[in-house]
Design a protein around this nucleic acid. Structure first.
Lengths: 146, 146
DNA sequence: TTTTATCAGTTTAAAGTTAAACTGACAGCA
DNA sequence: TGCTGTCAGTTTAACTTTAAACTGATAAAA
């Protein structure tokens, strides 16, 4: 098997695994009334409260515009607040946001983790090592996020 | 490290690796005037010509509506044709479609494959094995695509 | 003080995605 | 002949995303 072919097989398989996981995730989250992007935002805000929109964008690998769009809706629903200081807006969870996240997160995290239960513990660790190496050795060419 | 935590780390890492690869892909394809979904469609049609829209949707893990939308544009640009027989539409590449794909595909495939060059050959094979196992053992709960 | 540069966040248009309802041609039975 | 069901494909509205242009407050230079 030549090098390009092996790489391509990897890419297709990776994409399919990811997409399947994501779509199962979405279905699971939907029961709780969230979409994956909304949940991601809430989880990041919870973990790094208070966090600026720029930081959020960079942690979630999306553009600033996307963050603006999502936060606007979450704010309207009363789940997050934005305190402006000079240029930056500092995002925090409201009590409702905290409650909503608390109700959903544990189940969601367990669900996510369970998607890897087909592997043994050793295999999981090996997969994690490979993914990390892959990301590290590819990051050189990387520039900043828009 | 407990089981859920390991699974979560895997999920986040997998997502980031995938998203980074995809966005580099998109940038690379953009030079050739294609978006990733367009390229995926053309590549699948090329590989399975003639193929129905339903088959296309299932191979690409998207809904039928998405396929309709993308094909409509590709047809308008003269890259694919649709022959209808009873319920089904059979998609093929036009000569222009073939030419366009031929101009882009080799470079794109090489680019994709190169994203895994941070790994040794043995590691690539191991990663492929793990991803396959992951997909196989998770597929049980799967139902059909809408 | 006035001008200029910087930079987080916003807006816009275009693209792609989904779920869910709809369309329409045919098969198969009454 | 005329219902009725089935099923690929289409449509629609709502979401999410991006790139690129724009806004506006402030720092820094003139």
């Amino acid at each position: 098997m030549n090098k390009t072919r092996l790489g391509l097989l990897l890419w297709f398989r990776l994409a399919r695994v990811y997409e399947q996981n994501l779509s199962r995730s979405a279905a699971h989250l939907k029961q709780a009334g969230f979409s994956p992007p909304q949940f991601d935002i809430l989880a990041q805000v919870h973990a790094h409260q208070p966090i600026t929109q720029k930081e959020l964008a960079s942690k979630l690998f999306v553009t600033k515009g996307s963050v603006t769009y999502l936060l606007k809706k979450l704010e309207k629903e009363g789940l997050v607040t934005r305190r402006q200081t000079w240029k930056e807006k500092h995002i925090s969870l409201t009590p409702q946001g905290r409650a909503a996240l608390k109700a959903v997160a544990p189940g969601q995290e367990e669900f996510q983790a369970a998607q890897f239960d087909g592997l043994t513990d050793t295999e999981k660790r090996e997969l994690l090592r490979l993914l990390r190496k892959l990301q590290k050795t590819t990051r050189e060419e990387e520039s900043s996020c828009s």
